[in-house]
Design a protein around this nucleic acid. Structure first.
Length: 110
DNA sequence: CTCTTGACTGAGG
DNA sequence: GCCTCAGCCAAGA
């Protein structure tokens, strides 16, 4: 079977679901895990449909640990509240101790 | 098919 | 350390 780009979106959702509680990752990390390190933007783009899935998009942030996609959530600071609910410290839409809670699928997950 | 946009990243100033 | 530019890839009009 030929795996087309359709799986790219699906894989993003799968990986996002695999993110452990209280951990976060970056779009580039997921993209890299999918073998599309140059398609980090596509990961975020795919997340547009994550609302319809059980994907914890709030655990996915950009490389700076900044909640760039918080604007896509329903509330204004919903994403931040969700992260704080998991024990993640978020200040001004930016995750604190990012390196401490960073979860790389291509490293942590095999 | 061509152009634009986008929840990004890395390099340069 | 912060700001700006360019590259990349995919989907929608």
């Amino acid at each position: 079977m030929q795996q087309k780009t359709l799986n790219f979106f699906d894989k993003v959702y799968e990986v996002a679901k695999l993110i452990p509680f209280g951990k976060v990752t970056s779009y580039g990390a997921i993209a890299n895990y999918l073998g599309a390190s140059r398609s980090a933007r596509m990961v975020g783009y795919a997340m547009n449909g994550s609302h319809n899935k059980d994907v914890p998009a709030h655990r996915v942030v950009n490389r700076k640990g900044l909640l760039t996609g918080k604007h896509h959530f329903d509330g204004t600071n919903l994403m931040q509240q969700l992260l704080e609910s998991e024990g993640i410290e978020v200040i001004d839409n930016q995750i604190q101790n990012l390196e401490s809670i960073y979860w790389d699928p291509s490293k942590e997950l095999i």
